[in-house]
Amino acid sequence: MTALLARDLRLAFRAGGGFGLALAFFLIVVVLVPFSVGPESSLLAAIAPGVLWLGALLACLLSLDRLLALDFEDGTLDLLVGAPIPLEGALSVKALAHWLTTGLPLVLAAPVLGVLLNLPLAGFGWLTASLLAGTPALSVIGTFGAALTVGIKRGGLLLSLLVLPLYVPTLIFGAETARRGAMGMEATTPLAMLTGITLATVALMPFASAAVLRMGLR
């Protein structure tokens, strides 16, 4: 399993592996927002938590279709299904690799981009905390979506259609935490709910992902 993690990480960091692409996308989305809503600082400050969360979510979504598709094409996935390690574990590792190469950089970049959007000072800590607590859920749910669409040609759009509704609870609690934090309100309740969702999805979703992957590859 460690070998699988190391392999996925190496592949991601290699040129053309997609690492950094999500970050660049995140940056561009955040830069485009003031162009679309106007440069007014107070407005930007008000929408900053939501924009940063949505941007991170979309950036996460962007890299999902490569999560399993490349392994499907070169046959690695068939090996994994037949491998002595449980498929659930292998998919958890792949989700972890996705989070380390996509989610974690987004978490680290978000406060920097928060400056661009005039995020209130009180919001930085809550934003980082909420992203840290929420992005693992995005990766795990995304793995399920990728497993659903793995054998489908041009499954990218379908993947978005399937995964985005599943992201709703995470987005709501995540953005709510950041927004309340930025407004100086009490934000531990949504943060606790967000953490709960993340823990539950991390624990349960790999089973669903492995099940659909076995069905899809049969």
Partner: peptide
């Protein structure tokens, strides 16, 4: 499986939306 998982998330969304 999508229907099963979707049902769980639909219920979750219902409560999330109420909270939100």
């Amino acid at each position: 499986v999508l229907c099963l998982v979707g049902s769980v998330f639909a219920v979750l969304s219902r409560y999330a939306v109420k909270f939100w």
